[in-house]
């Protein structure tokens, strides 16, 4: 599904990713772990199409060159990024935003756009599943939301858009144990033999709830070790120092 080969990325002439390669097949869950500054967020930014990086190498998504597509086209094709720091957007109503987003994606996939009632029914159902406070739907997007609520809002969006590849960028940071479970449930509900996940995290904690098929250790822009779920535990025990 996603094939990254020899990806190099620079920002302001500083090398962040060096010869980075990774393969994700349909239905797989990959976790990337690494210390601060190892390039984790850069990877998610590049995959979702953020500008400002000097990039070389190749990224194929369903056999197509990902760099050919704009940010929103990647969203249409089924790439979803749960942001590490979801933005507050004053004046933009959450419900209206969700509906506009969902219909843009549906339209691009050739599906029927939802009318207001259909949408409301769907979003309420999903909110309840994720224990997302429905009052928040009528508030400005992420404005005044707590850290946990913002992250849940990301998972709500993921659940609505039903992406093929979900990238979770440190979604676990700043979450208490209850919120963590809700986020994990959201992910697990979407998990099947077609949908894939790339979970970027600093700690092993989230992986107790979302069991990865593969774990990769990212250091200084490179994957230094790959393995199964047990690698995360090893990492937790030994710390990153021993992976130089």
């Amino acid at each position: 599904m996603l094939k990254i080969s020899k990806l190099n990325a620079k920002i302001d002439n500083k090398e962040i990713l060096k010869n980075f390669s990774l393969n994700i097949n349909p239905g797989e869950v990959h976790a990337i772990m690494g210390p601060n500054g190892s390039g984790k967020s850069t990877l998610s930014n590049i995959l979702s199409g953020k500008k400002g990086y000097d990039v070389s190498g190749e990224v194929l998504f369903e056999e197509k060159d990902l760099f050919e597509f704009e940010t929103e086209e990647r969203a249409h094709k089924g790439i979803f990024l749960a942001f590490q720091y979801p933005l507050e957007i004053p004046g933009v109503n959450t419900n209206i935003f969700l509906k506009t987003s969902l219909n843009a994606v549906r339209k691009a996939r050739g599906e029927k756009e939802l009318d207001a009632i259909e949408f409301l029914k769907l979003v309420k159902k999903k909110s309840r599943e994720l224990k997302f406070d429905e009052d928040k739907l009528n508030r400005q997007l992420n404005v005044g939301f707590s850290g946990g609520e913002k992250k849940k809002n990301e998972i709500l969006q993921m659940s609505l858009l039903a992406p093929k590849l979900s990238i979770l960028d440190e979604t676990d940071s700043g979450l208490d144990i209850d919120a963590l479970k809700i986020v994990a449930d959201g992910v697990n509900a979407l998990r099947d033999d077609k949908n894939s996940f790339l979970i970027i995290t600093h700690y092993q904690r989230l992986l107790d709830y979302i069991k990865p098929d593969y774990v990769h250790v990212l250091m200084n822009g490179k994957i230094v070790k790959s393995g199964g779920a047990e690698l995360a535990l090893e990492l937790e025990k030994k710390g990153y120092e021993n992976f130089h």
Binding site: G49, E70, E72, R74, A75, F83, P86, L87, I89, A104
Partner: peptide, 10 residues
């Protein structure tokens, strides 16, 4: 960028 990553065009 945030809005576009959710499928809205520019």
């Amino acid at each position: 960028f945030y809005l576009m990553s959710r499928g809205l065009n520019y």
